[in-house]
Nucleic acid binder design. Structure first.
Lengths: 371, 371
DNA sequence: CATCCGTGCTAATAGGTATTATCACATGCG
DNA sequence: CGCATGTGATAATACCTATTAGCACGGATG
């Protein structure tokens, strides 16, 4: 039994195991054990909650403490694997993290876009919610990254600039931002072109002969509200129509605010001939107020909305509105992954996708009215 | 250098490596190597696509072939971990698989319910879609199970009996069926109580004095349509109202079918005083036809819907309808995971959750009409 | 006082994967 | 022919984690 050892001796001469400290990247159970002053086995027991093992609460806590402090994570072998391995069933999994899923349909639409785009390549999409919770968000992301995903799409339900959580920067996979962006342009990002959307909605009204066009805004601190208003002003300026502050009423995206704002607008000595409601809910309230005032849409007054919510097509008359391009945004995000294999993480411009106007029957020519 | 060896000798005496065949459950790289006629190292190189390693295409293929044949999957340490570990970031991850996410809001609502219930325990929900695709479904499920989830919720968008995919049976984690069930009752399952829902909707109309109550069904092959109709008949029977086949018109869940069916009902020599539309879309068409006929809701005729879609509250008048309990179903599913730790996979009864009626303004007393 | 446990942990080891240092073997070259 | 050289694998080993078999020790017991 001793001869075989000899056989391997010459190669062993060149071996130099563990030259000194081993500042390896990963934190191992042994590290935790050292920090907690116990054995690796104990660490294993604690972290796995192994049944039938009795440990003092004290020790458990010390281990967990140390594990947290050192940032232990269990080994995952596939973390860095490319999206498509030659191995069926190990295909790429793309993580999709969103703050809220249920509050509005946009998230689902974006996911659907991403799914469609992923489908061809055989990639699977895993969706996690963070609820904007500072505790749960890292957990949700870790639940994905630890399990080995090949890319991460990070979406917010409201369009806005975000301070990207630190962990986004330390991921070693491509990250795409959807409906949000960071100030440092560190990630590819895509958002709706709200300015262009507000502009084309307004231009649509101008094209129908309207000159006195009111708008009911959303909550002014929201990016979308600011941009849609900006687009409104831009369209007016382009058509050489002077901006009249009286025609801008602040709403809060709600139907009741839309109602109130419309009542206010109708009280003006010179009434608008068209109202650009900056979202569809506002338009619902607006419809209500107009009907109460005995005005007919679109004969007496025209209305456009924004967002193309399900209800827009069921209003009477069906509402002309702008489609949020979340489907396209989801597709775009996946396409980004397919084209360049993460080109040295430089600065990425923010991509904006158009909000196409869908014409229904709430806009009429101004001809029938006094011009 | 030789003394230390001595130090370890006594324990070594007790070593008996690989006593014989080791039919362990998992397929290891060594198994693949044996099958492919190469070394474990080569297998590792191939499966990891290690850069800087040159291997013949032939060998690569042989390895992949063998790996597929044996059903290799990379090691995952957390696969059997309990839902709640003491370790932040290692918390339980619950998989939620649904065939379709975007087509209707129910899936999102159920996910929301599951999320709420998971949240307290700090569990993360990962959602995957299958699109009912026989190829993608296993992949989607594997994307979850391979990565170590502590439970799986399997949902279908339509309530129905399913032939559970084989892989559901071979999972070693709890599986809950949501909005579907298997004939063998192998998994805990929860569905809406559509019969009770149809019954209480009808009873609601009866309670308002209606005796001549029509119903417009959904597509008759769907379980939900059959059950809602069953509930309708049961309510009539309970109130000793004879069932009149003339008052049952087949629809297909669509508004246009609702419109056509209503027209047909209005053509009856003895008109119904109330219509139970078996979903809200049908009710939309129904409203349309009634208004065209000059009838007022609820003065002249009452209408109830089903599903409580968003639009129901925006109709005029707002529609009385039944709420699908998907939120509760999602919560229920999670609660099942928390209570019994998989009690020996026996036969589970199908749990049915109530569809509560939400009363709005589309139902009136029959008093004003000829009785 | 010796014994006998339960308790709380650890040593040792089994069983996996990743990686490094070679190695056998054609193949071309002088 | 003798030798470098590139190619396609492998052996041996480094490093992980999980698990089994005890070990030390304090307190109850006889």
């Amino acid at each position: 039994m001793s001869e075989p050892t000899e056989l391997r001796d010459p190669p062993q001469a060149s071996r130099r195991r563990k030259p000194a400290a081993k500042p390896k990247g990963r934190v191992t159970m042994t590290d935790i054990a050292r920090a907690a002053g116990c054995s690796q086995a104990t660490v294993s027991f604690v972290l796995n909650n192994s049944p039938g093992i009795r440990l003092s609460q004290q020790t458990r806590e010390r281990v967990i403490e140390a594990a947290r402090a050192l940032g232990y994570s269990p080994p995952v072998f596939s973390a860095l694997r490319p999206a498509i391995t030659p191995f069926e069933g190990l295909d790429g999994v793309i993580g999709f993290v969103v703050d809220q899923l249920a509050t509005s349909p946009e998230a689902v639409v974006a996911i659907e876009g991403a799914r469609q785009a992923s489908w061809n390549a055989g990639n699977v999409l895993l969706v996690a919610q963070t609820m904007g919770d500072a505790v749960m968000e890292p957990r949700a992301v870790q639940a994905l990254t630890r399990r080995g995903i090949s890319a991460l799409i990070y979406m917010t339900i409201f369009t806005r600039e975000i301070a990207a959580p630190d962990f986004l920067y330390s991921l070693e996979i491509p990250v795409i931002l959807l409906n949000c962006y960071t100030a440092d342009y560190a990630f590819p990002a895509v958002v709706p072109s709200e300015i262009a959307g507000g502009q084309s909605a307004t231009r649509h009204l101008i094209g129908h002969g309207h000159r006195r066009i009111a708008t009911i805004t959303g909550e002014p601190w929201m990016q979308a509200a600011q941009d849609r208003l900006k687009g409104y002003r831009r369209a007016l300026a382009t058509a050489d129509i002077p901006f009249d502050p009286e025609l801008v009423v602040e709403g809060d995206w709600s139907a009741s605010a839309g109602y109130a704002a419309t009542v206010k607008l109708l009280g003006l000595k010179e009434r608008p001939t068209a109202i650009f409601c900056q979202n569809d809910r506002t338009a619902i309230g607006c419809y209500e107020a107009l009907k109460e005032a005995g005005l007919h849409i679109p004969q007496d007054i025209s209305v456009v909305g924004y967002d193309d919510e399900e209800i827009a097509r069921h209003l009477f008359p069906p509402l002309t509105t702008s489609i949020l391009p979340h489907l396209a945004m989801g597709q775009w995000a996946i396409e980004q992954l397919e084209t360049p294999p993460t080109p040295g993480r430089g600065r990425y411009p923010i991509t904006k996708l158009e909000c196409p106007l869908v014409e229904r029957e709430s806009v009429g020519a101004v001809s029938t009215q006094l011009r």
